[in-house]
Design a protein around this nucleic acid. Structure first.
Lengths: 240, 240
DNA sequence: CACAGAAACTATACGGCGTGAAGTTTCTGC
DNA sequence: GCAGAAACTTCACGCCGTATAGTTTCTGTG
């Protein structure tokens, strides 16, 4: 008979080792950048041989994919939490919360941001459906929620929008439309544009293409959000 | 006596070899991605030994830096040309031209875009003052020119702007203020925000974080520009 | 012309990388 | 106690950047 306790021991050790590999990998990334994630370095840190890791991850890329999944999920948790915590009745503040959470997480985990959104590790190639489809979907839906909550007040700005459903990738719409059945194509376009703005500014900041340029990127991001809610004709949070 | 013709021969051969190294490197990048830029691969392609390249570039990173300089300069040429070719009297069209040139170049040279703005080659570390300070300066000034040409009409939108010169990196201001002495801090902030928008959207497109999401990124980018000139209260190009 | 010296290039080597194959130790369930 | 599985090590291969030393080829001068 296979007693649960006994079988569980191996499994527990295995889970612990798996967790340690990931932890050490993330530490290496945080301290020395994504380049430092090498099987040999991880093994060295753990007092093991590099090949031992193959018992836990089929290839190095599999390990990276798992890391991306973890990190991306943490990001999704952060923005989702900010969204949930904000008042449903104040779209402007809600958008600010989400965007601030996104930026704050990214600045707190710059290496994670690079891992998720950049070319992270030397020769890494993501799997066909993306490294972390679930987390990507969550962020995508969160983003659409921004557009959705602003839409009632902002719709009039896009009366002449020329977007139609065929303009978008069916895979994207499969994610978005079930969650927001009422939303028109123009709102999806708005969501993508907002995504471009936020990702763009944060990316410049994280990659230092701007960090070396602006002393107070905080102010700039805040200004961006102010202009965004103003452009969407939402009640500005500061205005009262 | 050192006759110019004879001395010139070696120099010419040297220049040709240098050019071939760069050409082969760019071909490798275009065909197999930035990862493929290795001294050994270049040498293989040229029927040489990898070490021979050290006669032309001190290190691999020096070669990469030179490539970035070349590619970045080509980008700067493209956007500058679009700017020069557009009418001085129509800010909206001018901004569109610049932005379109930026996007078109980036889509035509996605690997180049990654080389300039992403983590390009595995372990590459850019020199202290950036890989291509000259080209970066040109793009930066071109960008500020966008804000500058929109400023007369857009200034009223930023009357309550809280930006001041100390908010910006002195190095940035050294580039920008001599070229645009009249420009206030709020306009520089606007330029940086526009940069974030454009870079963000193009970056999402180039990296496929959106390529897999939008079937017609063209339309989306166009929409972005329309909203931008509208937000800046410039005469829309289509409106007449 | 010969010849010294510089320039261009090759050969060899080292350490690092991912990873495959084969061997060894340690644990587990009967 | 023992067969077998799981965990891990050893060795090997080919890739990488690059340092050192040696070899070839070109160049200007006598």
């Amino acid at each position: 008979m296979t007693r649960g306790g006994t079988t569980g021991r191996r499994e527990r050790l295995r889970a612990e080792t798996t967790a340690e590999i990931k932890r050490v990998a993330l530490e290496l990334m945080a301290s020395s950048g994504p380049d430092a994630i090498t099987l040999r370095a991880i093994a060295r840190e753990m007092g093991m041989t590099a090949n031992a890791i193959y018992g836990y991850f089929a290839t190095r890329d599999d390990l990276i994919t798992t890391l991306i999944k973890d990190v991306y999920t943490a990001l999704a948790d952060a923005v989702d939490a900010a969204w949930e915590a904000s008042s449903e009745e104040d779209p402007a503040t809600r958008i600010r919360s989400w965007a601030d959470a996104f930026r704050n997480w990214s600045l707190a985990n710059p290496q994670g941001f690079r891992l998720v959104y950049g070319d992270p590790v030397p020769g890494y190639r993501a799997p066909e459906d993306g490294a972390a489809p679930d987390a990507a979907r969550r962020v995508c839906i969160g983003l659409t929620a921004l557009a959705a909550c602003a839409w009632p007040q902002a719709e009039h700005l896009y009366a002449d929008s020329a977007f139609d459903w065929p303009d978008f990738d069916p895979a994207l719409l499969d994610k978005v439309r079930p969650a927001f059945p009422e939303l028109p194509p123009a709102a999806v376009a708005l969501a993508l544009r907002i995504w471009g703005h936020l990702h763009g500014l944060v990316s410049l900041e994280v990659y230092g293409h701007m960090g070396a340029q602006t002393v107070s990127p905080d102010k700039l991001f805040h200004e961006e959000l102010t202009q965004l809610v103003r452009a969407l004709t939402l009640t500005p949070a500061t205005g009262g």
